[in-house]
């Protein structure tokens, strides 16, 4: 089959799209198939990832769209790198161990998973006993309470129940930092052993900041996506998982399940592996009995139904990414004012 993207079976169709998006198969040359795929990638906000792996094309329109998306990803990457450097600067001279999480870690290590992410904030992990000192130094360097959560109720809620400090926003650059001391809220059903993961973390280059070991990096991504609500961005999240999995050696892949069991996070890791098998044809043995059928079905609906999925979910996911957008969107602000009543 050459005109793959025209497949009528939703699962097949999405699987083909993921193959294009991750560079496993070259982009279709058939104009209709290409148009279908690009429009799917645009709706899922993953054109930046596509641009990172697609080979040069003589289709000028396609190149234009990919360059547009690549410019946006380069910005996110630059912003993350710079903010990471600012955090390092803020904590210079202390012995606080800081682990970069998610996007900032991927970018620091130049991983494929770090390209094309839409990033609005930086996530770091420190030991709970280091929280007060880390918070103090970050505040000295210009990070302040984010207005929307600066009220006493939210402050107390975060500090009592959450796995992170209330978000801090830099007073000049407007970027947000989430300082974690655990990987999931105290109230979450599973409780990953983050101290074991921190113990295995290693420095980035010759700097002071740390990143998780590759296996733990994959595991944390799985936790974030399947236990922390990040599947609202299905295409993007699955691509991230795929890239992180791809970066593992055979031995590391083999150790995933035992490490997950040790860290007490078996269920999200098994779902992640099941999804990678279903959508990327990754060769893994998955014990489906541990994954609830409802969960499997809802993931399938989300990933495969595209347009038909409830709008509320789509809004919810984009909302979390755009609400904290650090751009000085004065123009956007003007439009918003213009359409606001009264």
């Amino acid at each position: 089959m050459v005109e793959m993207a025209t497949s009528e079976n939703p699962h097949e169709r999405v699987r083909q799209f993921f193959c294009f998006a991750s560079g496993l198969t070259p982009l279709p040359t058939d104009a209709k198939a290409l148009s279908d795929f690009v429009s799917w990638a645009q709706r899922g906000h993953i054109l930046g990832q596509v641009a990172a792996v697609a080979s040069a094309s003589d289709n000028k329109r396609l190149q234009t769209l990919l360059e547009n998306a690549a410019t946006r990803s380069a910005y996110d990457k630059r912003m993350l790198k710079f903010e990471t450097e600012r955090i390092e600067r803020a904590l210079l001279g202390t012995d606080i161990r800081v682990v970069l999480l998610k996007g900032s870690a991927y970018v620091a290590e130049d991983l494929l998973a770090g390209i094309g992410r839409r990033v609005s904030d930086i996530d770091i992990l420190v030991k709970e006993e280091d929280l007060p000192e880390a918070e103090k130094l970050l505040r000295q360097a210009g990070w302040k309470d984010e207005v929307s959560t600066a009220n006493p109720y939210d402050q107390k809620y975060y500090r009592d129940w959450m796995h992170e400090l209330p978000p801090l926003r830099h007073s000049k650059r407007r970027t947000i930092i989430d300082v974690h001391h655990r990987l999931l809220p105290r109230t979450a059903r599973i409780s990953p052993d983050h101290l074991a993961m921190m113990a295995d973390a290693s420095p980035v280059g010759d700097g002071n900041l740390l990143v998780f070991a590759p296996v733990d990096r994959f595991i944390h991504s799985a936790i974030h996506i399947f236990a922390d609500g990040a599947l609202e961005t299905p295409a993007r999240s699955l691509l991230e998982l795929f890239y992180l999995f791809n970066d593992l050696s055979v031995q590391e892949r083999d150790s995933l399940e035992s490490r997950a069991a040790f860290l007490n996070v078996m269920s999200p890791v098994q779902i992640a592996l099941w999804a990678l098998k279903r959508y990327f044809g990754v060769m893994v043995i998955v014990n489906k009995s541990n994954i609830s059928k409802v969960l499997r079905l809802s993931i399938e609906t989300m990933v495969e139904n595209g347009r038909a999925a409830p709008l509320a979910r789509v809004l919810l996911y984009v909302r979390s990414h755009y609400l904290r957008m650090p751009l000085p969107l004065l123009m956007a602000h003007l439009f918003r004012k213009a359409i606001r009543r009264g």
Binding site: L315, V318, Y322, A332, F335, R336, A338, I339, R340
Partner: peptide, 26 residues
């Protein structure tokens, strides 16, 4: 993509169209 636009009465549809096209570019 998510944008906090306030819905308008249906007769102001042309305004939504123009604002929406501006948002896309911006």
């Amino acid at each position: 993509f998510y944008f906090p636009a306030v819905p308008l009465p249906v007769k102001l549809g042309p305004l939504c169209l123009e604002m929406g096209m501006n948002l896309c570019v911006a």
